[in-house]
Simulated scan of single mutants.
Amino acid sequence: MFILIFSESDMAPPTKKYQQNDKVLCSHGQYWYLAKIVDVQDEKSDNPVYTIHYQGWKKTHDEKIPHSETPERFKEYSEDALKEATEQQKQGSQAASKKRPRKSENEIDIPHTLRKILIDDNDCINRQFKVHKLPVRYTVQDILDEYAKDFETRGIKKEAESDITEGESVNDQVLIIYENGEITASAYKFILGAEGIKDYFNTLLPYQLLYKFERPQYQEVSKGAETKGRKSQEAKPKLPSDIYGIVHLLRLFSRLGSVLKLTPWDSKVRSIINEVCRDFLVFMETHKDRFFDVNKDYQSTTSEYQKQVWSM
């Protein structure tokens, strides 16, 4: 682990503006890399946006960085600074190779094809400055509804609770049932545990499942949903599960392991939850091409929207 110590001048408000073709050291993760400014947008404004290209990296890794973030992201280029940064990268790589990552019992394995969706999503939002078209084509609620129907295609139909003896095994389907605030394992033909995933999703999305660049959009959509909900006494504001879809659901799964650590449940209950999650992920992987299309599901943002983000 490396501790970067900044002087007072490093922490001062940004004053120097950079020009196209300037070389800088740019932070990416925990290290600094040689980069070149290949474009400058809004050059005459107080907060121009720099497009930087990392030397030796593919163009897909180019980033747009507003001037207001340069004190944390940029270092002045010099041969000595580059040598120091390269040495830190080398030492970090050697240290990482000696450590074998330990997998948490709560960690949820996300298939590679679904992880690629998260990678594409990160690129669209944080590099291309796009946002999702909301509500999405297939919301979390839509996905859960189709997941429920999928059990019928597998020959597994939901039966009345009274028809099944507690603890009985039905087609080897283990499900999660909520009773008095606790989770118990019972045998049913229909996985009700997916509703628990939706509850987690609706609770965590505003706080942990959004990028900074998405927050103004969420605030606007939330206001619109509340306004529509108040037009009728029976109408209710839309929940995040009625607005967002597979991408944000996958973000939840990537964090679910750390969330489960905070619960008082024993290893047996967590094992059941993992079983439900694995089955649900297999379903999403099978239908991922319907639920997600990188060419259809995003829209560009205006310069006004981007300025709103950078001012937050």
Rank of each mutant, 00 (worst) to 15 (best):
Y147N: 03
A160M: 15
I183S: 07
L192N: 02
A148M: 06
E146S: 01
Y188P: 14
A225N: 04
G229R: 06
K198H: 00
T184F: 07
A160D: 15
T203Q: 08
A225L: 04
Q233W: 10
L144E: 03
R154P: 02
G193K: 03
K228D: 15
R230K: 10
L192G: 01
Q219C: 07
L204P: 09
I177M: 04
P240A: 13
Y211L: 05
K157T: 12
E146K: 07
G245Y: 08
F201T: 03
E168H: 03
A235V: 11
D163T: 11
L204H: 13
Y207T: 15
D199K: 05
E159L: 10
L210N: 08
E234I: 15
Q219A: 12
E220I: 07
E195R: 01
K212S: 13
K212W: 06
A225F: 01
G181Y: 00
F151I: 02
S232W: 03
T165Y: 08
K189D: 06
T165V: 12
Y244D: 08
Q219I: 10
I177W: 01
T165L: 10
G167R: 01
V170G: 01
S222T: 15
R230I: 02
S186C: 12
Q233D: 12
Y147H: 06
L239C: 03
L175A: 12
L239P: 01
L210A: 06
P240S: 14
F151P: 03
V221Y: 06
S222N: 14
K149F: 07
F201E: 05
A160E: 15
I191R: 07
L204R: 14
K212Y: 08
S232I: 04
D145P: 00
I156S: 08
D242E: 15
L239I: 05
G229Q: 08
P237N: 05
N171S: 10
L239T: 14
K157C: 07
S222D: 14
I177R: 12
E166W: 11
L192P: 00
V170S: 09
I183A: 05
E234S: 13
G181L: 04
N202F: 02
L175N: 11
E159A: 08
N180C: 03
N202I: 00
E166H: 05
L209T: 05
G224Y: 02
E182F: 09
K236T: 14
G224A: 01
I143P: 04
Y147I: 08
I164T: 09
E220F: 10
L210V: 07
S169E: 15
L205V: 01
A160K: 15
K198P: 00
E182G: 05
A160I: 13
A187M: 09
Y211T: 03
Y147L: 06
Y178C: 04
Y211V: 02
D199G: 00
D172V: 04
I177Q: 06
L192A: 00
